Computed example of a mutant assay.
Amino acid sequence: MKNKIGIIVVLILIAVFAVIAFKWIKHRMEYVITDAVFVETNNLSNISFKRVSGKIIKFYKKEGDKVKKGEILAKIDPKDYVLQLEKIKKEINSLIFKKQALEEKKDRINKQIDKNIQIVKISLKENKKLQDSLLSQIKGIDSRLSQLKKDRERFLNLVNKDLAPRRKLEEIETNIDVLSSQKEALLAKLEQLKLQKQSLNEKVKLTKIKKLQIKEIESEISSLSSKINSLRKSKEDIENLIEYTKLRAPFDGVIAKRFKSVGEIVSSGVPVFAIYPLNDIYIKVLLEETKLKGVKIGNKAIIHIDAYPDEYFEGVVYEISPAAASKFALVPRDITAGEFTKVAQRIPVKIKIIRGKIELLKVGMGGEVEIEKK
């Protein structure tokens, strides 16, 4: 009885082993298995400070941290740029004050010129009216004097011949004297009006000179405006430099490497971080050429990462290199001398991860891949 039980147990074990062996052989026939596996990315970017240099005073992220686009990663001391900004701000404010003072002066002179022009125009108009009135009066007096002088000549002849009384002649001469005095007074007033007109014309000339002064002020204002605009551009540039003292993430990703430490002096363009986008991670497989048969684009792949043995990752083949990895080595093998040892070449295969916690993966991790064969 015991022998029968023993035989049954052996047969069961043989059957179990046969099933396991069958499954193992079947799996080996359906899948290509290799451990030449690495987590890779196409876009590992070195991040550096732009246009600024100085001492790093703070890091906000460390290696392995996830970052969002625009997040601050590190900062250098902005003190020198802040001092430059304050200096330019003071210069701008000083020039703006000068410009405002000149504009006020220009407005004041303009108002004065407008007022003077208005007064001069009214005065010239009034002067002309008075001169015309005086000339009209003088013309009337000249006409009357001419007539009186003719009457005096006529009465003088009559008086000499005793044909008219002398009293009449004296009356005419008195009228001539009165009119002559009136004419002299009017001529004096006319001369005063002419002098007044000359004075008004001088004021017009002074007004023109003040207009030239305004042009000079406008030219100075324009020059100050140009300087202010130039300084404002410099101010904007320095404000940008101050913003550049904050190193920001260019995209969503993961910090792969930090090259500098707090207190180090860095120059513009020197790498501070290496960062890669999380959604750009893929699995790179260096597959032996002897295992390449049946591996096609679109084939399913099961990925095992050494760091996470309990995590399941699944992917698909999306690229198979047309050349062996050895062709891209920095120092390719020289076989022209006839020295040659046959070695199985490895073909780079890229696998896109479609399932699993991709955020756990870090560039450079290793593992094992099983690629379905078709």
Rank of each mutant, 00 (worst) to 15 (best):
K2A: 15
N3I: 15
G6M: 14
V9S: 15
L13E: 10
V16S: 10
F17Q: 09
H27D: 15
V32M: 12
D35L: 00
V37R: 05
V39N: 06
N46A: 14
K50Y: 10
V67E: 02
I72P: 12
L73N: 07
P78A: 03
K79C: 05
Q84G: 03
K87S: 07
I88K: 00
I88R: 00
K90D: 04
K90I: 00
I96T: 09
A101I: 06
E103F: 03
K105E: 13
I109S: 05
I113F: 00
I119N: 14
K121M: 10
S123V: 13
E126G: 03
K128D: 15
K139P: 00
G140L: 13
R144C: 05
K150S: 13
K150A: 10
D151A: 09
N157Q: 11
V159W: 06
P165L: 13
K168H: 13
D177I: 15
V178D: 14
K183N: 13
K183V: 04
L200I: 10
V204Q: 10
K208N: 15
L212D: 14
Q213H: 13
Q213I: 11
I214H: 02
I217G: 04
S223M: 11
L224A: 08
L224N: 12
N229T: 11
R232T: 10
S234Y: 00
K235S: 04
K235P: 02
N240I: 06
N240Y: 04
I242W: 00
V254G: 01
K260S: 02
G263R: 02
G263P: 01
E264I: 11
E264A: 09
I265M: 05
S268P: 03
V270D: 11
A274S: 12
N279Y: 10
V285N: 07
E288M: 07
Y312C: 01
E319P: 00
P322N: 07
A325L: 15
A325N: 07
S326P: 02
V331L: 15
T336V: 15
E339V: 13
R346D: 13
I347Y: 02
K350S: 12
K350Y: 11
I351Q: 01
K352L: 13
R355P: 06
K362I: 03
G364F: 05
M365G: 09
I371R: 03
E372W: 11
